[in-house]
Amino acid sequence: MAGLNVSIAFFFLVVGGCQALRWLSKRFLSPGAYGYLARELAGSLQLCTSGLELRMLMEIGPWGGGFGPDVALTLLFLLFAVHGASFDGASANPTVSLQEFLLLESNLAATAAKLLAQGGGMGMGWAATKLYWSWELTHFHLIQNLIASECSSSIHTALHHAAFVEGTSSFLFHLVLLKLRQSHPMYRVPALAATVTFLTYTAGPFTGAFFNPALATVATFHCSGSSFWDYVQVYWLGPLAGMLAALLLYQGNIPRLFQKNLLYSQKSKYKIPKARVAAHTEGDETQWKRKREKSNSEPCA
């Protein structure tokens, strides 16, 4: 278990370093530069480095370390809970940033800046993790370095099925995210961590369960066994289609493209209780009767 302890220490180091980067950026950068660039870069760096280390444990741990998938899934839940609590509003996921753009919560320039920062953070995270693995601090890293040049594709099923799996995972993730985005972090963070853990457990054997185009690009696009276009279909188009389907189902429309609700009828925001309507009707009738009696009682000229 010594190798597992080293990985856990690495997770703490990554979260602490990225938290320090967020603190320094917030102090010395403008709110716009921090929110659109530094925050997303730090979140993507944190997600990529910890995600790659955890994926290595999930692949090598069962036969190289003697621990089962329950250990890796527990670490996954705890890591995503920490990510949700420490990201400070960053998504570190291109489909989430595009969703915010389609919801009119972010303009085109801000969205482009977020996407660039996410790509840069993922690239930095990949380079930092490769450097860390090259030190071979544990036998896990030694094995990882031996098999790194011969890595195979994470797509272990038919191409159309793999795209469907990634799209469905993205659909469920974004549906939960939309439902909980206004909730208190105390409830939102563990719910999203549990969702990611469940999706990884169910979809992992088929595609690796990335449902994050940036993370999938740095983690698996360089591996042999599938073409670049295969990877694009599964890890870019699949999650994008899942996000659009979740947004359309939840909102009934896509605000950036059109305002008309395509799925749900427009209902009045304010409802008048039936008792109040009945009382109002009875009052009108009583008032009308009094006026009629008064007009009948007046003497004729």
Rank of each mutant, 00 (worst) to 15 (best):
L75F: 12
S106H: 05
Q99W: 11
Y34H: 02
A42F: 05
M124R: 03
T95K: 03
V71L: 14
F80D: 05
R55A: 09
P62M: 05
G35F: 05
P69M: 13
A109R: 14
R22A: 02
N93Q: 08
A81I: 04
L75T: 08
R55C: 00
G64Y: 06
L108A: 12
G84Q: 02
A92R: 01
L103R: 13
Y34S: 02
D88P: 02
G125P: 09
P94T: 08
G64P: 00
K114T: 11
S106Y: 03
D88C: 13
E100M: 14
S44Y: 01
P69C: 00
L45V: 08
A72Q: 11
P94Y: 07
K26H: 11
P69E: 08
S50A: 13
G61A: 04
V96Y: 12
S91I: 04
G64Q: 09
I60H: 02
E105Y: 03
C48V: 15
M124G: 13
Q118T: 08
T95W: 02
G35M: 09
L75N: 06
M58S: 11
P69F: 09
A38F: 07
V71P: 06
P94M: 09
K114H: 14
T74A: 15
M56I: 03
P31W: 07
F77Y: 14
L115R: 12
N107K: 09
A42M: 00
A127W: 15
A109Y: 10
G123K: 12
T49M: 14
Q118Y: 03
A85Y: 15
S25V: 06
L108K: 07
L98C: 08
K26T: 01
A117Q: 07
F87K: 07
M124L: 15
E53K: 07
S91A: 14
G119E: 01
A127Q: 15
I60N: 01
L47Y: 10
A92W: 04
G121I: 13
M58T: 06
A112Y: 01
K114R: 15
Q118L: 05
A112D: 00
G125F: 07
T49D: 00
A127Y: 15
A92P: 02
Y36G: 01
